[in-house]
Amino acid sequence: MLTAGIDVGAATAKAVIFQDGKIIGYAIQPVGHDIKLVAHETSKEALHRAGLSISIEDLDYIVSTGYARNSIEFANKTMSEIICHAKGAHFTIPSTRFIIDMGGQDSKAIEVDQDGNIINFAMNDKCAAGTGRFLEVMAHILQVESMDEMGPLALKSNEPCPISSTCTVFAETELVVLRAGGKNRNDLIAGVHKAVASRVAAMTANLNCNPDAVFTGGVARNTGVKKYLEEEFEREFLVPDEPQIIGALGAALIAQTQLLK
């Protein structure tokens, strides 16, 4: 039984090939202007890494997720990324009860039961604060190569600068003013990370952050955000080995369930 999950988000496309309860291949590619092409190419790369010389259409079942889920023509079913992240995180860490997923343009908090079923969830609305995009904008201002590289720099700070603006555009201005005022760069970076964590924590006011808490999505690779999330929630967050593919993994798991019905 060979299934796949395709997660095409705002910044990246992820594909996971799944067989007999195991991930046998996966791939991540940046999303370009052609959604259908990137979905195909990412799937092809995942199949190649799985050592399979078949086309994506030859798989038994495919579930697509992410913002472009409805544009993936070769998918048998679509599923929201919140459900997929819940399933994927629960499969990776079965003790998962609470998940923070932070992607390119959204962040989600998900409360799950012992079987990985969603009990409650929250997702950012139209605002980019608390997302990967917020970090990318700030990385650009602070001349750090990438969002991931900001994390270790944030950890070097002992006195994070408070960033009070909740709007990405206003926070950008605030950062420029603070920088002009001679603030230490690592303190600014740490302030940015603390602001992101704070926004996400505010979003989860109606949810129970029970252990084990898991951090997924592309931003989960950022050690600075992890640190400040743990401060905000006063608990440890576990990060899967490859946090970016958890949504695609969940989709592949749902595909498997569909076949077993």
Partner: peptide, 18 residues
């Protein structure tokens, strides 16, 4: 103008599945 149906779909779909 500030919210499209598509941006709301993920939340509503998830709730429906729940």
């Amino acid at each position: 103008r500030a919210y499209s149906a598509d941006s709301l779909r993920t939340k509503v779909e998830t709730f429906a599945e729940m």
